[in-house]
C-alpha cells in the first residue's frame, strides 16, 4: 500500500549542516580533551550539552519554529549518537564507573547505557543500515533522538504505519542480533 522508497535521505542542506556541526564538535572535543584529560566524566557531559545548545544556536529560533521540534531532534539524534559512541569507545576499557552516562540537557536528560552495550548496538545498527537504511534511521531517531512515532514518520517522510512497522522489525532484528552475536 505504501509507495515510500526504501531509502529517503535527509535533504542536502541538512546534511551539510550536520557535517559542519560534526566538524565543529570535533574541534570542541579536541580542545576539551586537551584541557581536561583527567576528569573523564566531564567531557562527554559538556560535549552532549554543547551539541544540543550549539545546534539550536546554529539553526536559530526561526528554523525551530518553522520545522518544529521533531525535525530539530532528528538532526540532534545523529549528533547525539556520534558523541555517545565516541565516549563509549573511549571508555570500554574503563573499569571504574566511566560507563553509565547521565547528562542534563535543557529540560531533558540523557541516560546512556553501558559502553559495551552501546557500542554493540551501534555496530548492529551500522550493519542494519547496510540491509535497510530507512529502518536503521528509524532506530537512530527513536533511540538517540527520543522522537515519537509521529515525529519519526514526519522526519523520514513516510506514513505512520510504515514507520511503526519499521520500528518493530528493526527492534526485533537488533534484539536478536545482540542476543545471538554478542561482540
Amino acid at each position: 500500500m505504501d509507495v515510500d522508497p526504501p531509502n529517503t535521505p535527509a535533504s542536502s542542506a541538512d546534511e551539510t549542516l550536520t557535517a559542519d556541526l560534526h566538524r565543529e564538535l570535533r574541534e570542541i572535543a579536541a580542545s576539551l580533551l586537551r584541557r581536561e584529560r583527567r576528569d573523564h566524566t566531564l567531557q562527554p557531559t559538556a560535549l552532549v550539552h554543547e551539541a544540543y545548545v550549539r545546534l539550536g544556536d546554529r539553526l536559530g529560533e526561526a528554523w525551530r519554529q518553522e520545522h518544529g521540534e521533531g525535525a530539530f531532534r532528528a538532526l540532534a539524534a545523529t549528533a547525539m549518537r556520534r558523541i555517545l559512541v565516541d565516549h563509549a569507545r573511549a571508555h570500554t576499557a574503563d573499569k571504574r564507573g566511566g560507563g553509565w552516562l547521565r547528562v542534563e540537557l535543557p529540560e531533558a536528560m540523557v541516560e546512556a547505557p553501558e559502553p559495551i552495550e552501546l557500542l554493540a548496538l551501534h555496530e548492529a545498527l551500522e550493519h542494519l543500515a547496510t540491509l535497510d537504511e530507512r529502518k536503521a534511521r528509524v532506530v537512530e531517531l527513536r533511540f538517540f533522538g527520543g522522537l515519537t512515532g509521529e515525529e519519526v514518520a514526519e522526519a523520514i517522510g513516510v506514513v505512520r504505519s510504515t514507520a511503526e512497522a519499521d520500528w518493530f522489525m528493526a527492534r526485533a532484528w537488533l534484539r536478536k542480533r545482540l542476543a545471538e552475536h554478542p561482540s
Binding site: 541516560e111 527520543g146 532484528w173 536478536k176 542476543a179
Partner: peptide, 24 residues
C-alpha cells in the same frame, strides 16, 4: 524467532537515551 524477540518488554532499546529530566 524474530516474533519472540518482538515480545520482549522494556529493554534498553525500548527505553532509548532521552527522557524528561530534573527541572522539566
Amino acid at each position: 524467532s524474530l516474533l519472540a524477540y518482538h515480545d520482549v518488554q522494556g529493554d534498553t532499546i525500548d527505553r532509548g537515551v532521552l527522557r524528561p529530566g530534573v527541572g522539566a
